[in-house]
């Protein structure tokens, strides 16, 4: 089943086309990797999907519903969870409170004056933390977490509103090689079971080739390849503009 359907997406900045005529789709339970050189338009593309940037042209449909023109928080309410390249968590709160705030928002109780936030949706928050393997760190301050754990906390927060689609911007940036593969294995496990669609950008080709079901490649704002990993890897144009000689990543 198609969760996200993007058609003819385009955006220019000051007359320079950052993204032009990009179309693709993501299926439920699938991971789609978006790769390309620095400055190819990946971030622009991402920000148009999550509502931070308004496209000049094109359509973005979530489960058939047009979401262009909606604000990020409205898009979230329709079931789009996000993780950021540089983790964004609430540093002054405990790990559990981070998830609790997401749940409070999901249940529309943000104006509540009673009871204490730390007593609301505690069990639900702990269940989410358990799914990402963070249950034992629930009481720690988010500000003191190791980087890999912050990434897992972000994932738990992103799952709090039972999303249909996860947008992950360089989910494994800054992590050690094995942690990268483990995090994406965790994501893949969860989304396959729950039928969540995932779109992620990534520079680590080991992660991309190990976990992506399909790969799309962006270069100078245009889609130059769309296919299964083996196809994309063998594409001479992709090798020329992005993959290079393949000396800087594994061959598995």
């Amino acid at each position: 089943m198609t969760v996200l359907q993007v058609e003819g997406l385009a955006k220019s900045f000051g007359g320079v086309a950052a993204v032009q005529g990009v179309s693709f789709a993501v299926e439920a339970g699938h991971l789609l990797a978006l790769i390309g050189p620095n400055g190819a338009g990946k971030t622009t593309c991402f920000n148009m999907l999550n509502g931070q940037l308004a496209p000049d042209r094109g359509s973005v449909r979530l489960d058939g519903r047009e979401i262009v023109g909606l604000k990020p928080r409205q898009i979230w309410r329709l079931g789009v969870g996000r993780t950021f390249q540089i983790t964004a968590t609430f540093g002054s709160m405990t790990v559990r409170e981070n998830v609790q705030v997401a749940l409070i928002s999901h249940h529309r109780r943000t104006l509540g004056l009673w009871p204490r936030a730390r007593d609301l949706y505690r069990a639900e928050a702990e269940a989410l933390l358990a799914r990402v393997g963070m249950a034992d760190q629930a009481e720690r301050a988010a500000a003191v977490l190791a980087y890999g754990d912050l990434k897992r906390l972000e994932l738990a927060v992103a799952l709090a509103n039972t999303p249909r689609l996860l947008l992950m911007d360089e989910p494994t940036a800054g992590m050690a090689p094995r942690e990268r593969v483990e995090l994406m294995a965790l994501v893949a496990g969860i989304v396959r079971v729950e039928g969540i669609a995932v779109l992620f950008t990534e520079h680590d080709m080991d992660v991309v080739f190990a976990h992506a079901d399909r790969i799309i490649v962006l270069n100078r704002g245009e889609l130059i390849a769309d296919g299964v990993p083996a196809q994309v890897r063998a594409d001479p144009r992709v090798q020329q503009v992005y993959l290079g000689g393949g000396t800087t990543f594994g061959h598995g």
């Binding site: 928080r73 950021f84 705030v101 409070i104 928002s105 943000t110 009871p115 936030a117 709090a160």
Partner: peptide, 30 residues
């Protein structure tokens, strides 16, 4: 009030407006 859901949401918006926005919170309104 600091510990109430409203206070927690405010602190969330202060810590990371980006994240608060991405979990459906209208930071400005709060």
């Amino acid at each position: 009030l600091v510990f109430a859901p409203f206070g927690a949401v405010l602190r969330a918006g202060r810590d990371s407006p980006l994240r608060a926005d991405a979990i459906g919170i209208d930071v400005r309104r709060h």
